[in-house]
């Protein structure tokens, strides 16, 4: 049953502009050298952080299409009628969102890292850091989308909510790219796990509150 929900959301995302966040990610990464100049050493120093800022801003784009269309069209009501809990819907949406957001972003990180002048060891650290962190970004996006569904200007409000919540993740994730020591990566993984564990419950409660 959850498999059907995931398949539906993946299908809808692929048709509904799943490539947009990836393009946006690359654009932001490409903008940084223009803003700070082409100095290779400066770029290599800030590259990891810039890559994560690009990932974070790209994560904002899909917020408005994650939950609100299903609320407006009564799909959430129909799922509830069939005894499917808000948490189950949230887990399905998080998995589906990551599938259409995480792997494409990892692929885009390769040219992105080249634009920012990251060398090969840094690129590998960046890929690991993004692989660990993007599931948490997907979970945050679904939670925030559930909280803001049905509100006027929900997408903008979603951005305001998501960015501060993602800051702990951003700190450790960017550090994990810059620092060869594994400490930051472990802290990033812990933060990501915490977000992943909590988000379905936040989202489930928000979906229940939507009905009243």
């Amino acid at each position: 049953m959850i498999g059907r929900l995931i398949a539906r959301d993946v299908r809808r995302a692929l048709r509904g502009g799943a490539w947009l966040p990836v393009i946006f990610f690359l654009l932001v990464a490409a903008t940084v050298p223009f803003a700070v100049g082409p100095d290779v050493q400066v770029l290599a120093r800030i590259g990891g952080g810039a890559l994560w800022i690009a990932a974070l801003t790209a994560a904002l784009l899909p917020i408005e299409r994650l939950v609100e269309p299903d609320r407006a069209d009564g799909v959430l009501d129909q799922l509830c009628l069939r005894g499917i809990s808000g948490e189950e819907v949230a887990i399905a949406k998080i998995v589906a969102h990551w599938l259409t957001f995480g792997p494409p972003l990892l692929l885009a990180a390769v040219p992105g890292a080249a634009l920012l002048g990251l060398d090969e060891p840094a690129l590998i650290r960046a890929l690991i850091s993004l692989a660990v962190g993007t599931p948490a970004l997907a979970a945050l996006a679904v939670a925030v989308a559930s909280l803001t569904a049905g509100l006027r200007g929900g997408a903008a409000l979603g951005g305001l909510l998501l960015l501060p919540l993602a800051i702990p993740l951003l700190i450790f994730a960017a550090a994990a790219i810059g620092d060869a020591q594994a400490g930051a990566l472990k802290l990033e993984a812990a933060t990501a796990l915490f977000i992943l564990a909590g988000a379905p419950f936040v989202s489930g409660a928000a979906l229940r509150a939507l009905r009243t």
Partner: peptide
């Protein structure tokens, strides 16, 4: 069961609902 009554109980068989929302992709 989409709404809960402020007081009292509702018991019903599995229901299917057609309201203003189409709920089709």
């Amino acid at each position: 069961g989409l709404l809960k009554p402020a007081a009292g109980t509702v018991r019903a068989q599995a229901a299917a609902l057609a309201d203003h929302a189409l709920a089709l992709d």
